[in-house]
């Protein structure tokens, strides 16, 4: 354990934590765009900057150390965050996330030339990192310099995309577009069909690609994923009902005895004894 000071108050921190982790744990407001708790720190957006010994550091990549004295509200921090927001507003003037954040720092319009033709991507790489951690790595940054953007291999339909929508659902500026209907999804110009429930044949919430990928990744059987949750719950309820009516059934079955299936309604009537034993 180490003790660090944030805005004049001492906090206990575990070794290996970053300053942003400690701040979040103690409800100290530090804005961030590229930070996601499931992912490794990236340090791209520079919104989470704090002051340490007169220097500006990104708190998401700053490991805690003994006797650190962090300032999150100093004039220097505010100035740097304003500069960052001014630049971000110039890059994507129509992003609601950026506009809201800028308003908190008293900026309503960028002093620079606003780039009207661009989408709202701020190159925070949350989408590519989420995708990489899942293990598909279907998207990446493409091109370099001022043309840098998030894209698919050669601008074509990404072969490794499984249509899980994690990239779109975690985008801080909601830039990644997708279409979703009951029958399927379209994202990155690739169409996906939803998998069918193996019992009721209704569409599940996973795409066919997701079923195959998740099963392979987790080492679980594909049948687990190709079943809708309603059918799964129904099956569980039936199993429980059978256990209540005839607690020994599964043991008898394991020993090689089989019964006729008992009706669940028997639970309200007089107890029903197993009708017949058959050695299978």
């Amino acid at each position: 354990m180490v003790t660090i000071t944030i805005d004049g108050i001492e906090y206990e921190a575990r070794e290996g934590q970053t300053v942003l982790d400690v701040a979040k744990e103690n409800n100290i407001p530090i804005p961030s765009l590229c930070h996601h708790e499931a992912l490794k720190p990236w340090g791209a957006c520079r919104m989470c900057v704090v002051e340490l010994n007169g220097k500006i550091m990104a708190s998401c990549t700053l490991p805690v150390a003994k006797d650190q004295n962090i300032k999150t509200k100093s004039e220097l921090v505010k100035t740097v965050r304003k500069v960052v927001l001014n630049l971000l507003l110039a890059r994507c003037p129509h992003s609601k996330t950026i506009q809201q954040l800028a308003r908190l720092y008293g900026i309503t319009k960028t002093t620079l030339k606003a780039d009207e033709g661009r989408d709202n991507c701020i190159l925070c790489n949350v989408c590519t990192r989420v995708c990489a951690q899942l293990g598909s790595s279907a998207i990446a940054t493409v091109k370099r310099g001022s043309e840098k953007e998030i894209g698919t291999p050669f601008g074509e339909k990404p072969p490794d995309c499984i249509g899980c929508l994690s990239c779109a659902r975690n985008c801080p500026t909601e830039t990644i577009k997708f279409e979703e209907t009951d029958a399927g999804r379209i994202i990155w110009n690739k169409s996906f069909e939803m998998a069918e429930c193996s019992i009721c044949k209704a569409k599940t919430v996973l795409t066919k690609e997701q079923v195959v990928f998740f099963a392979k990744k987790s080492g679980l059987p594909e049948e687990y994923f190709a079943k809708c949750d309603e059918c799964a719950r129904k099956e569980t309820a039936e199993t429980f009902a059978q256990l209540v009516i005839n607690p020994g059934a599964h043991i008898m079955k394991a020993w090689g005895f089989t019964f006729g299936k008992l009706e669940a309604k028997a639970i309200t009537a007089s107890p029903v004894l197993p009708q017949k034993f058959e050695r299978s």
Binding site: L165, S166, F214, E235
Partner: peptide, 28 residues
């Protein structure tokens, strides 16, 4: 389920053989 770490990939929902992970329709 730590919501801050969840990226909403639906893997847990599919994996549960008893159908006990649910997707809230309104909030996602």
């Amino acid at each position: 389920l730590n919501e801050k770490k969840c990226v909403k990939c639906s893997a847990c929902l599919g994996a549960c053989p008893f159908g006990n992970v649910l997707l809230e329709n309104n909030s996602g």
